[in-house]
Design a protein around this nucleic acid. Structure first.
Length: 275
DNA sequence: TGCCAGGCTTCAC
DNA sequence: GTGAAGCATGGC
């Protein structure tokens, strides 16, 4: 276990910002998550002091980048348009959000599942796949499961895959798993491509359109200029920006701005703001 | 009970 | 290129 001082970092906000689906609250100040085949507990000890249930080496190799701890988010926040009252409120409300750097495969599959589903329903689906086809990870008081890799999902009979509440997305996941397993789709090469080439390659996947491709670019490729537009973001652009939000105003980190917006618009605080 | 969810494919025009 | 229909299922 190690202890770190971290600014602009709020576990609850990260958990509820709709970018990851496997983080869970243990108690008021403590969360756990599972990523890169590892189980991690994080506890907020004081205002900006956090403990991580791993050693320094694992922290350096995985979690430092996973939580994007090398980025100074105060710079993004200080550049907000001072006349944009909505965005100022959104940033204040979600000031501890960070853009996670998640595994590409998991992000792809979870966001394919996400289409036209609520976040609680996505979590249920993802957990069902993990507990059925993931690798067990033993921790002191329980057993958790890693996210299943492409070979594991590719070998699940289609009729069985359908039993996990995937709905019409079952065929997307089945086809993509097979293509990755048989090396017809080169997942590993995406990180060698530049932003536009990687984005366009993602769009060739059956079941992946602009929104999901942008989510993968933002939450896995860590292209923080990606600006996914879902029903909530479109609602904001319509209601708060008269149908036209200029992402170029935040060129290079528009995805971070998008995440503040998404987290805020779904809150009861925004309901007050909008009244 | 009915409505909506971090959208996409397909097909008409 | 744009627009609309159809889609499976869970959660509230």
């Amino acid at each position: 276990m190690i202890t770190k001082q971290i600014n602009d970092f709020n576990l609850s906000q990260i958990d509820e910002s709709g970018q990851c689906f496997r983080m869970k609250q243990i108690n008021d100040s403590k969360y756990y998550t599972i990523a890169y085949g590892k189980y991690l507990e994080i506890e907020q000890l004081e205002n900006n002091i956090f403990s991580f249930s791993c050693d320094q080496e694992e922290f350096n190799n995985i979690w430092f980048d996973y939580f994007d701890l090398g980025t100074d988010y105060s710079l993004f926040k200080s550049n907000i348009d001072p006349d944009d009252l909505f965005l100022k409120s959104a940033v204040e409300y979600g000031k501890g959000i960070r853009i996670l750097k998640q595994e590409l495969w998991e992000t792809l599959i979870t966001f394919i599942i996400s289409q036209r589903k609520s976040i609680p329903a996505i979590r249920t689906c993802v957990e069902s796949l993990c507990s059925s086809y993931g690798k067990p990870i033993k921790v002191p008081d329980k057993t958790v499961y890693s996210f299943p890799d492409a070979s594991a999902l590719a070998q699940v009979p289609f009729e069985e895959l359908k039993s996990h509440g995937l709905g019409y997305r079952d065929k997307y996941i089945s086809q993509l798993s097979s293509k990755v397993y048989y090396k017809e789709f080169d997942l590993d090469n995406i990180y060698n491509l530049n932003f536009n080439d990687a984005y366009n390659y993602l769009l060739t996947i059956y079941g992946v359109g602009a929104k999901i491709a942008n989510c993968v670019m933002l939450f896995a490729y860590h292209g923080i200029d990606a600006f996914p537009k879902d029903v909530w973001i479109n609602r904001i652009i319509k209601n708060e920006y008269n149908g036209n939000f200029d992402t170029d105003r935040y060129f290079g980190y528009a995805g971070v701005i998008q995440q503040y917006m998404f987290y805020y618009v779904r809150s009861s605080e925004y309901a007050e703001f909008a009244r």
